[in-house]
Design a protein around this nucleic acid. Sequence first.
DNA 1: CCAATTTAGTTGGACTACCTAGTAATTGCC
DNA 2: GGCAATTACTAGGTAGTCCAACTAAATTGG
Lengths: 177, 177
Amino acid sequence: MARAPLPMDPIAEARRQWLAHGWADAADGMTAVTSLIRAQQIVLARVETALKPFGLSFARYELLQLLNFSHDRALPMASASARLQVHPTSVTNVVDRLEQDGLVRRTAHPTDRRATLVLLTDDGAARVGRATATLNRDVFAALGIPPAQLRDLVQTIARFRREAGDFVDPPELPEPL
Amino acid sequence: MARAPLPMDPIAEARRQWLAHGWADAADGMTAVTSLIRAQQIVLARVETALKPFGLSFARYELLQLLNFSHDRALPMASASARLQVHPTSVTNVVDRLEQDGLVRRTAHPTDRRATLVLLTDDGAARVGRATATLNRDVFAALGIPPAQLRDLVQTIARFRREAGDFVDPPELPEPL
DNA sequence: CCAATTTAGTTGGACTACCTAGTAATTGCC
DNA sequence: GGCAATTACTAGGTAGTCCAACTAAATTGG
């Protein structure tokens, strides 16, 4: 990743180019998409930096934390894949490495002989606990976005995700027909 | 990528977990970070889907479009790396493949014998032009985020990027000192 | 002017994610 | 009951990202 700040905002520059080429109807969407992609790069870089001392990447951390919050600290591979929204082969890959590091263990599923349970080891639980403390302190609690904007950002993205079919609302109240 | 929508919002669920564990000061930041990462996954998936018929990925497209907007349709590798905010080795990698496909060519820099110019070929220009039309129509102009929220989103992220040192404001007026 | 430093780019290695294709086990339907 | 379709996972290959280390060329400083 390049370190030196650019002398101007490349996204605003792209927006100018879009307008100059007569693509006004797509300019705002283009700007939003590139903004989201760039913002993700920045926050992910911070997360990876914070996790590096623990020998974890964000992909590893997410899986460990998911197990940590699950009953019996275990989950079938397929459930992890669905919950993390990643390809099943990615889960296989990450579990392979986490298992080599002794942070998780593969176990037989009690009833379904096709399935494999991933189990968080004590080492894994300790590791993810320490990583979370660092992450909370150095990244999440120090993002640098004012609370009001943070709230709007999350809400806008939540609406977008729901419309994109990312999840469906749980029936908390009586269903409106 | 998993396709079926989850029965509830996993990010809201994570937020509940964070609050339940007494990490209230980090909960909003965690929520924002995971929201950004998930939103990027969704929009990037749409972009990649739209680009697939053209044999392009977003990384390839970005480089081609950057060259397309540059003088003489050419740029030194280092400039592309800085502008795209990716590691120099990533540029080497992408240029290798684009060159194999005949969409760009490596040329000698006229004055600096260390540097390599990447030049957009006519084929490359035609390809990126058609890809942009599709991208504008199918993705950017059809994001599904209301205009007002789109504007706020972009502005919030722009502020965040500036504070993160992504870019510095251009000296549009006489330099202070 | 020449040595030391910086800059530009590539190579090799590691990680993550995806896709395709395969095996094994389970479920569903006649 | 038994065959077909589905589900769970793994293997192999491709793409993209990064880092560390390296070569070559340009710049800088004494």
